[in-house]
């Protein structure tokens, strides 16, 4: 059981018509599942990113334990570690698809968290100060004043991340293809 079934070993010209149909089918479902895992990843990333913006000393650094390794290693390595590593430590056994989308979701979350942090940090301090002076709490300041501005800053780099994650997920869609042609 090595990892080679993840990788494409046939020559492209040997693909039959039926293979192509399977591939397109796999691509279609894969796209939907990919978008879903990007969504989950964004939500998770948002939560983690928000935690890093709190002014609580140790807590606001905790998410980085999750974020930094995921940002600084290749997606494929993360995938393999999850798919092969986790069963060795716990009783949990993910299928190839499950592993792929959990990895994509977590990886996305890491990048999104950083962007969330950067967007909030980009709002000048005096915005917060004005909000507090007007009697807002942290939560109220954030909801009414900070979020709208931060969101506008958030969009362009986040879109970049989504596009690059879609590219990366093409790697994962090959797993689906191999599943179908090699019968699992």
């Amino acid at each position: 059981m090595d990892g080679s079934q993840f990788f494409f070993t046939e020559k492209a010209t040997e693909l039959s018509y039926q293979d192509l149909i399977f591939m397109l089918n796999a691509a279609g479902t894969t796209l939907a599942a990919t978008l879903f895992s990007l969504l989950i990843g964004t939500l998770l990333g948002f939560i983690l990113g928000m935690i890093t913006t709190f002014k609580i000393p140790v807590l606001n650094k905790l998410p980085y334990i999750f974020i930094e390794p995921l940002r600084n290693s290749p997606l494929v390595v993360q995938l393999f570690l999850l798919f092969y590593g986790l069963p060795m430590l716990t009783k949990i056994n993910f299928s190839k698809w499950q592993a792929a989308f959990i990895t994509l979701g977590c990886n996305t979350a890491a990048f999104i968290a950083v962007i969330v942090h950067a967007s909030v940090a980009a709002i000048p301090q005096h915005q917060w100060e004005s909000a507090y002076a007007l009697g807002h709490s942290y939560a109220s300041s954030f909801t009414h004043i900070i979020f709208g501005q931060a969101f506008r800053i958030f969009i362009p780099p986040a879109l970049n991340i989504y596009i690059s994650q879609l590219h990366t997920s093409s790697l994962l869609s090959f797993i689906g293809f191999m599943e179908i042609t090699h019968a699992g």
């Binding site: 990892g3 393999f80 092969y84 590593g85 060795m88």
Partner: peptide, 21 residues
Amino acid sequence: VVLAGNVFRPFEIYSTIFVGY
């Protein structure tokens, strides 16, 4: 990947290169 195929220690190997990267 090749090493994991020969040695059957996927977790150790992949976590090592994970840290390595």
